[in-house]
Design a protein around this nucleic acid. Structure first.
Lengths: 125, 125
DNA sequence: TGCTCATATGAACAATTACTCATATATTAA
DNA sequence: TTAATATATGAGTAATTGTTCATATGAGCA
C-alpha cells in the first residue's frame, strides 16, 4: 500500500477491505460517538434516569441531585441539543421530559452489561 | 428542607421523593456513565464497528483507521478494561474481537436515534 | 412601571483525556 | 544470544468539558 500508517508485515488486507466496505459511513460513526458523549456524564445520566420516572422542572432536578439550577440548566441544554429531552413552559416554570423511545432500550442494555457476572479471572476459588 | 441546593419556591417535593425512590443506585448510574464514556470517542466507536464485522489484529485496525498501532493499542486497553473486547494471541499477533452481546443492540438503537427524522422546526416549508 | 422568581447563558478555571513519542515486553527466527 | 517484529505502556501535551459565578432574559405580580 502507498500510504502506510502501520509498519507491520502481517496485515490482513482482505479482512481490512471487507470490513471497510461493511462499516457505516464515517459521519454516522462520528454522530454515534457524539450521542454517547452526551450519555457519558454522571449528571446527565442521573437527569435522564429521573425523567424516566416523571416530568420535572429545573429546580426539581436541582433539588433531587443536590446541584445548582445553573449546572442543571447547562446540562439540559446539552440534552436538548441532542434531541433527548423536550420542554414545556408553564409560566416561569419549564418542565422537562424525555423525547426518545430508544433511550430506555439503550440504558437497559447498558445496565445489563454492567450487571453481567465477571469472567472466571475474578471468581473466588 | 434543611439542605437546600435550589432556592426556588415551586419545588414539587412529592414528585422528587417518588423519583428518588424509583431511581437506580447512585453507583450504578456512575458505572453507566463510565460505560458511555467508553463509547463516546470516535476512534473507539470505529474500532467496535470494525469488530462487528470481523476479528482483527492491532495492525489491521491501525491500517483500517489510518492511525498508529500505538494509539489503537491505547484504545483497545480502554475497551478491554470495560470488558467490551476480548483478545487472542497467535504468536506475536494479538487478535481482538467483541465480548458482549449487548453492544450491538445499544449501537443499533443509538443509530436509530441519530437517523430519526427531525421535528417540524427543521422541516422545509 | 418596578420587583421577584425560574431559567438560561457567557466566561473562566480545573479536571479529564486522546494522541505522540520514546521505550519496554514478548515472540520468532537466525 | 542477537536481531527483528507486534504489541503494550508511561510521560508529556493540546484539546475538550463540567462546574461556578455573574449576569441576562422573561413571566407573573404589586
Amino acid at each position: 500500500m502507498s500510504d502506510e500508517f502501520c509498519s507491520c508485515d502481517i496485515v490482513h488486507e482482505n479482512v481490512i477491505e471487507m470490513v471497510r466496505k461493511k462499516m457505516p459511513q464515517e459521519e454516522k460513526l462520528y454522530d454515534l460517538a457524539e450521542l454517547f458523549k452526551v450519555f457519558g456524564d454522571t449528571t446527565r445520566v442521573k437527569i435522564i434516569s429521573a425523567l424516566f420516572e416523571a416530568e420535572m422542572c429545573v429546580c426539581d432536578i436541582a433539588e433531587l441531585l443536590h446541584m445548582t439550577p445553573s449546572s442543571i440548566s447547562h446540562q439540559l441544554r446539552v440534552l436538548r441539543q441532542a434531541r433527548l429531552v423536550k420542554h414545556r413552559k408553564e409560566g416561569k416554570v419549564v418542565f422537562y421530559s424525555l423525547d426518545d423511545e430508544h433511550i430506555k432500550t439503550i440504558f437497559n442494555q447498558s445496565l445489563e452489561h454492567i450487571l453481567e457476572p465477571r469472567g472466571f479471572e475474578y471468581a473466588i476459588s
